[in-house]
Design a binder for these strands. Structure first.
Length: 479
RNA sequence: GGGCGCGUAGCUCAGUUGGCAGAGCAACGGCCUUUUAAGCCGUGGGUCGAAGGUUCGAAUCCUUCCGCGCUCACCA
């Protein structure tokens, strides 16, 4: 039957119910019990008052079984005409799968032993006008699952669990950092100048100020201003926005954790990262062994493998330590197109990202990045061409990035200028205000960024970032 | 933006070599007092993503477009 006709039929039923004087969109319902409590605390004859969605309906003439589902689980209800009375039973016969009901009654066990609520009072709390997806196969169409996530949540078991895990992971991260004396702060998402990363921003406009603004691509430069201001242990866990391609690892708005710790350095951030992620895994997965979206086992128990940027490139290219390495030759052997790279460092970064990192399944720290690839990181004292930085890879993807923060304003200005000279993007300008802040003195500090969506992918074993974002970005629906 | 794949009833899916548009669930009517994807009898429901083309005849072959997915490119 055409959808419009089904809706018309349901609306007709609504008219019939209204004529019976029944309220179909009730207000407050004094729910006393959750469905799960019937199973956790079963006593024959125990009185219960539950509410939820009708998810299955089996009628047998003058009696009917139905399943009522709430956030805790489902409970079978049993409605008899000789118990509830003729009129209420007629009313129940006009209910459909999908309706939200309140039910009151006593528990008993059926012949097959299922704990069931024998109903003596029923109330319709919301009448559904549209059919739910098929009950057995659920909702499979990927586009519909994302565009109408509420249907996905109703019909596909496991989806809700994924997002519960996401929420628990995030609250565990906050509790962990709070417990270590870090303070959560909020910095602007709308910024006059972009910085803290190299990425294409979204642009917007403030009418009253007549000012063009950008949605932030990273909170970094504002968090460092707070280090200047005297906050010593801070974090921000919120959205950033990048106007770039979508993929199973990229959503235009994504959630990032950034942590700044004064008087610490990148090695402290390494330890912090290990402890934080292992702790979150223990809390939400019950252990440090997880399986990623491709079915590969990942062992998150510290300590994690550490190797330098150069060694990672050597490993990918099969060049022994100590041997001389021609990076363009290595790239050629690996079939990488590096014609767009203007320096050896960029070639090496290409090798790392394309050839080396996909093999880092268990968490792996890559350290000592070249300075030109790291404009905000402090250089090593023993080798000024490398900096005190690491990236963390797991499941073959970048998960975190951290460094000892550059707090030398003169050097920072030089790095910005070099970055601007090297072409980069249109519309970039030097963030003078940030350099001014550094000129007032920023304590040495370790800084860390973790991609929360990707972390949740690993914790929940999902292959696509869209499975861990409730409403992922899709092309706007054309009418 | 390029390459590959997919798009059939509200949902999940069949559809043979180009030859009447199908099933289950859902819906509607009826029967049924312990069902578990309840069962039984009956009814209705289609712009086969859209447009064009080839053909006596197109869901099926071709072209273009739209949407989605994968992938490449882009992308600290």
């Amino acid at each position: 039957m055409k959808l419009e006709d089904q809706i018309r039929q349901k609306k007709k039923r609504v008219e019939e119910l209204l004529e019976m004087g029944v309220s179909l969109y009730g207000g407050r319902y004094l729910r006393r019990d959750r469905a799960r409590s019937a199973h956790e605390d079963y006593r024959e004859g125990r009185a219960l008052r539950v509410a939820g969605r009708l998810t299955a309906y089996r009628r047998h003439g003058r009696t009917a079984f139905a399943d009522i589902s709430d956030c805790s689980g489902k409970l079978q209800i049993y409605v008899r005409r000789d118990v509830v009375g003729e009129r209420p039973y007629e009313l129940f016969k006009k209910c459909d799968v999908g309706d939200i009901l309140g039910a009151e009654g006593e528990l008993f066990r059926t012949n097959t032993g299922e704990i069931t609520l024998k109903v003596n009072e029923l109330k319709i709390l919301a009448k559904a006008l549209r059919p739910l997806p098929e009950k057995w196969h659920g909702l499979k169409d990927i586009e519909t699952r994302f565009r109408k996530r509420y249907l996905d949540l109703i019909s596909n078991p496991g989806v809700k669990e994924t997002f519960v895990t996401r929420s628990r992971a995030i609250s565990t991260i906050r509790a962990f950092l709070d417990g270590r004396g870090f303070l959560e702060v909020e910095t602007p998402m709308m910024q006059e100048r972009i910085g803290g990363a190299v990425a294409e921003p979204f642009r917007t406009h403030h009418n009253a100020l007549d000012a063009d603004l950008y949605l932030r691509i990273a909170p970094e430069l504002f968090l460092k201003r707070l280090l200047v201001g005297g906050f010593e242990k801070i974090y921000e866990l919120n959205r950033s926005f990048r106007n770039e391609g979508l993929s199973r690892f990229h959503n235009p708005e994504f959630t990032m954790l950034e942590v700044y710790w004064a008087y610490a350095d990148y090695t402290d951030m390494m330890t912090l990262t290990e402890e934080l992620i292992a702790h979150v895994a223990m809390e939400v997965c019950g252990g440090t062994g997880v399986t990623d979206g491709e079915g590969r086992r990942i062992d998150l128990s510290p300590p994690w493998r550490r190797l330098t940027f150069e060694d990672a490139v050597r490993e990918a290219g099969g060049v022994k330590p100590g041997d001389k390495m021609d990076v363009r030759e290595v790239a050629g052997c690996l079939d990488l197109d590096v014609s767009g790279c203007s320096s050896d460092e960029e070639v090496m970064n290409e090798i790392l990202e394309k050839a080396a990192s996909p093999k880092f399944i268990d968490p792996t720290f890559v350290t000592d990045y070249p300075v030109p690839l790291s404009p905000l990181a402090r250089a090593r004292d023993d080798n000024p061409s490398l900096c005190e930085r690491f990236e963390l890879f797991a499941g073959g993807e970048e998960l975190a990035n951290a460094y000892s923060e550059l707090n030398d304003p003169i050097e920072q200005r030089k790095r910005f200028e070099r970055q601007l000279r090297s072409g980069e993007k249109e519309g970039r300008e030097l963030d003078d205000d940030f350099v001014t802040a550094l000129e007032h003195g920023m304590p040495p500090a370790g800084g860390l960024g973790i991609g929360i969506d990707r972390l949740v992918m690993i914790l929940t074993g999902k292959a696509s970032i869209r499975e861990v974002i409730l409403f992922p970005q899709l092309r706007p629906e054309s009418s």
